[in-house]
């Protein structure tokens, strides 16, 4: 099925927002203004957007420590996210969570998560709720190649199978967990989908730097899961353009690897090539999106800098505390 012009523009825009959000953070973090640990999603945009473009806010997702892309793709407000990363009282989590914990339950975004493997079991519970509600809703756990080695992820997959719930395990294989290669850490020669399959679910594989591959794969997956066939898993082969966290010297990379993946495996370039060659959109359409996105990011950063700071009293709110 051909995507409409609007849908194409919207998908491109979402990927571009994620890209520029992260590129901007990369430069802002170097100045020391932003506190804490930040894990950037650049390179993987096609996955978050190719998955979430199929969803609406009654569908749930749960994310990882590398969560900005999932948040944006699922509809979290970009300026408010930026405020959260700046630690503002006006941020998504009032400055209490920061980059690793952005959540928006109303959007069906059950949170970025600082605990690797923390998300998948929660997604199963949300899938149970979706099954009870009986409206064809789904629940999606995003996990990395590293997270697939946690017992919690194993337990979640098996439980989803035996309870036959509409859970989807999306594995983003960017070939590294921190500084360790996937071939070393994932015993099935780095093949995550086959592992998920062994738990008894149907699995798919897709090219995680090509929006169209992700989008079309997810259409099949979602048709299958929404039809009540139980859980499914998908492995997307993708790339992380920055270090594990900001400040990572990345000495584990091969020579020229970063240049090569930016050159050959950039989902935005690939999208642009495909849609312009197929004459679905022209360069000027995309350039206009780029310009609009750059001003959104600029405004978000300015807004974050000017936003209200939390005060000492705020430490004691949003929790039961007797002393």
């Amino acid at each position: 099925m051909q995507l409409s012009r609007d849908a194409l523009l919207r998908s491109y825009r979402q990927m571009k927002v994620i890209r520029e959000f992260e590129e901007r953070l990369h430069t802002e973090i170097m100045t020391g203004e932003i506190a804490g640990f930040t894990h950037l999603y650049c390179g993987q945009e096609a996955v978050a957007v190719g998955v979430c473009e199929h969803l609406d806010n009654v569908d749930k997702i749960i994310s990882t420590h590398r969560g900005h892309g999932h948040c944006i793709a699922k509809g979290c407000d970009v300026p408010t996210m930026m405020k959260e990363i700046w630690g503002s009282a006006e941020g998504t989590c009032k400055g209490k969570g920061g980059s690793m914990h952005i959540a928006d339950i109303d959007q069906g975004m059950l949170g970025a998560n600082g605990i690797v493997g923390g998300g998948a079991p929660i997604a199963v519970g949300a899938a149970m709720a979706a099954k009870m509600d009986g409206q064809g809703k789904v629940s999606i756990a995003f996990s990395g190649d590293g997270a697939c080695n946690q017992g919690t992820t194993f337990e979640a997959m098996n439980m989803a199978v035996v309870t036959k719930v509409p859970a989807i395990f999306v594995f983003e294989n960017n070939h590294y967990s921190e500084h360790t290669g996937v071939d070393y850490a994932v015993g099935t020669s780095g093949d995550i989908a086959s592992r998920a399959e062994a738990f008894g679910m149907k699995v798919w594989r897709g090219n995680g730097v090509d929006f169209f591959s992700v989008y079309e794969t997810m259409r099949e997956v979602l048709d299958y899961v929404r039809a009540g066939n139980g859980p499914a898993a998908v492995e997307f082969d993708t790339e992380r353009f920055f270090g594990h966290f900001e400040g990572d010297p990345q000495r584990y990379r091969g020579e020229g690897e970063l240049d090569r993946i930016r050159e050959q495996r950039d989902c935005l370039k690939i999208f642009r090539e495909k849609v312009t060659q197929a004459k679905l959109l022209d360069g000027a359409d995309l350039d206009a999106v780029d310009a609009e996105v750059m001003s959104l990011i600029e405004a978000s950063v300015e807004g974050a800098r000017a936003a209200a700071r939390p005060t000492a009293e705020d430490v004691l709110t949003d929790v039961y505390i007797s002393y």
Binding site: A35, G36, G87, S88, A89, C93, G95, K96, G97, G98, H101, R309, P310, T311, A312, D314, V315, L316, V319, I321, S322, Y323
Partner: peptide
């Protein structure tokens, strides 16, 4: 500390 989780923002 108070009986709360550890908050993120510098001020907090």
């Amino acid at each position: 500390p108070p009986h709360t989780p550890v908050p993120f923002a510098r001020e907090l």
